[in-house]
């Protein structure tokens, strides 16, 4: 295959992967009342309009709070696991590993349904705590995997050196291990945040009147309304993700962890 043909193929692939976003951005800038491309006149009115919709605002806040909270808890649970996997013989061996990675294997929609049927309804639990539990469980394997990757380059003898210089085990971890896996933890946070923020199937059954995450709210809205506001909102979300990813790539080399 000649390199010119390879370049052409690559251009087509990127047109397919990234082109649609350019179209959404353009569609969101329409001045008209209904969704169309090419847009009927240019205006930023729909970009401002999405901020006026109360249900978007509320679900955006919930999505952010949920993503931050679930990611933090997943890290609190996952970092010790990654550390244990790197330093100790794993008790329970393969079975333990399967259990810890099960949230990745189980289709997410099942988790939402199961929590609704067997936790939320019987225990009369609020929807938000259930969302929080489901998102956290989903993120733990990611946190473990990303942090493990950065622990893999760290030899265990630096902790032994710290201990011999008078540090106890806990100090040794916080003074020598943590500073050296900081980038991995930040990368795990960003990936976790993005995953949770964009998550739909888990949240599908765990939403109710007045309580909904942003992606679910968008799905509902587009079912009944055919105006450019979802295009504008999608464009905003795409730009937000791009900004996060570019910053993370610049400072952390995020692509090493994906």
């Amino acid at each position: 295959m000649s390199s010119r043909m390879g370049g052409l193929m690559l251009a087509l692939v990127f047109l397919f992967l990234i082109g649609p976003f350019l179209i959404i951005i353009a569609a969101g800038m329409s001045a008209g009342e209904t969704l169309a491309f090419p847009p009927q006149g240019l205006s930023l009115r729909w970009f401002w309009a999405v901020f006026e919709v109360e249900s978007f605002r509320a679900s955006f806040v919930l999505s952010i709070v949920l993503a931050v909270g679930a990611t933090l808890l997943a890290l609190v649970l996952g970092v010790p696991v990654a550390y244990a996997l790197a330093r100790y013989p794993l008790p329970g061996g393969e079975a333990m590993r399967t259990l810890l990675t099960s949230p990745v294997i189980v289709p997410a929609i099942i988790v939402g349904l199961a929590l609704l049927r067997y936790v939320v309804i019987p225990l009369d639990l609020g929807i938000v705590p259930a969302l929080f539990v489901a998102h956290t469980a989903l993120l733990v394997p990611y946190a473990v995997r990303v942090v493990s990757a950065s622990l893999a380059n760290l030899r265990s003898d630096i902790e032994e050196a710290a201990v011999l210089l008078g540090a106890n085990r806990v100090q040794a971890f916080f003074l020598t291990v943590l500073p050296n896996i900081r980038n991995g933890i930040l990368a795990a946070f960003i990936l976790g945040f993005v995953t949770s923020f964009n998550q739909v199937p888990v949240s599908l059954f765990l939403t109710g009147p007045g309580v909904s995450t942003l992606p679910i709210q968008m799905l509902w809205y587009m079912e009944f309304t055919y105006d450019p506001s979802i295009a504008a909102l999608s464009a905003l979300l795409a730009l937000m993700s791009m900004a996060i990813v570019l910053l993370a790539e610049r400072f952390l080399g995020l692509s090493r962890y994906v």
């Binding site: 992967l17 990234i18 649609p20 976003f21 959404i24 993005v194 923020f197 964009n198 739909v200 992606p215 968008m218 799905l219 909102l233 999608s234 464009a235 979300l237 795409a238 993700s241 791009m242 996060i244 990813v245 995020l254 692509s255 994906v258």
Partner: peptide, 11 residues
């Protein structure tokens, strides 16, 4: 990788 980070709803 970039598209993977963008909301599937938007995509």
């Amino acid at each position: 990788i970039l598209p993977l980070m963008i909301s599937p709803v938007a995509r």
